[in-house]
Amino acid sequence: MTEAEETVKAAPDVAALEQEGEIAADYVEGLLDIADLDGDIDMDVEGDRAMVSVVGLKGGDLVGPSGEVLEALQELTRLAVHRQTGERSRLMLDVAGYRERRRAELTKIGTAAAEDVKATGEPKALQPMTPFERKVVHDAVATVGLRSESEGEEPRRFVVILPV
């Protein structure tokens, strides 16, 4: 396979991702109607995944403690997309900007922990996290120039930051 063919093959199918977003938005809008909640739906494609956000929603009922309700809603939404497309979805659901705020917080945590590991030369294990949270921390650690691994079993899976 030529390099050009590999690039084309690796490029995300934007039309399929937009379709995922449309299906997910319809599903989430239906849930909001059932729950009698007012909120607007924003859709986007970022990289290789569809992004659906509920904005203008007051209160954290759809986020829950530590994002647990949001995680469950995301899984239900992914299942709804899968049911219609027959394809596994990597869709990301956000409510009231929770994921963006959490991403910023986790980036700081990952960067600080990586700096500690650089200074001490000792590996450091973090608290258990969701797959989304671990990905953010892995990215932050890589930016500092260190390596990290996920260990343990869900739902207690955690990141370990390793020295050089």
Rank of each mutant, 00 (worst) to 15 (best):
L31D: 12
V160N: 10
V52L: 04
A119Q: 06
G86E: 04
E105S: 10
L57S: 11
R134H: 01
K9M: 11
M43W: 05
R83W: 10
A24S: 10
L62Q: 07
R88D: 04
T130D: 08
V160Y: 09
A35S: 10
D38R: 15
E29S: 15
E87I: 02
E68P: 01
A11V: 04
E87R: 13
T77P: 14
L17N: 01
E149Y: 05
P131D: 11
A10F: 12
A4N: 10
R147M: 12
R157N: 05
T111L: 01
A25P: 12
V45P: 00
T120K: 08
A50T: 00
T143C: 04
L162G: 10
V45N: 00
D139G: 02
L62K: 06
R88S: 06
E87P: 01
E154F: 03
F132W: 08
E133P: 01
R147K: 15
R99Q: 09
V45D: 01
D36M: 14
H138S: 05
E71K: 11
F158G: 09
E20T: 00
D44N: 08
L106G: 00
R90L: 10
K58A: 14
V52Y: 06
A35Q: 09
G64I: 00
Y27I: 14
P65K: 15
A50M: 00
T143M: 05
S148D: 07
G67M: 08
P123C: 09
L32I: 07
V55P: 01
E122R: 14
A113S: 12
G110D: 01
T107W: 02
K135E: 08
E5Q: 14
K9T: 12
E151A: 14
L70V: 08
A15K: 14
A114N: 02
V63M: 05
E87N: 13
R90H: 11
G59C: 02
L146H: 12
E100T: 10
R147V: 14
K9N: 10
P155Y: 15
A125N: 02
V55C: 02
G56V: 04
E153Q: 15
E153H: 10
L57N: 09
Q84M: 09
G56Q: 06
A35H: 13
A25H: 12
V144N: 06
I109H: 01
D33G: 12
H82A: 07
F132R: 12
V28Y: 07
R83F: 06
V8L: 15
G67A: 05
E100L: 11
D94M: 07
E149C: 05
H82M: 11
T77V: 06
G30R: 14
V45T: 03
L32D: 11
L73H: 08
R147N: 13
L31T: 11
A125G: 08
H138D: 10
R78L: 02
D40I: 11
D61K: 12
A140E: 01
P123I: 07
R147L: 12
G60Q: 13
V54I: 12
A16R: 13
R90N: 11
E149F: 04
R103T: 08
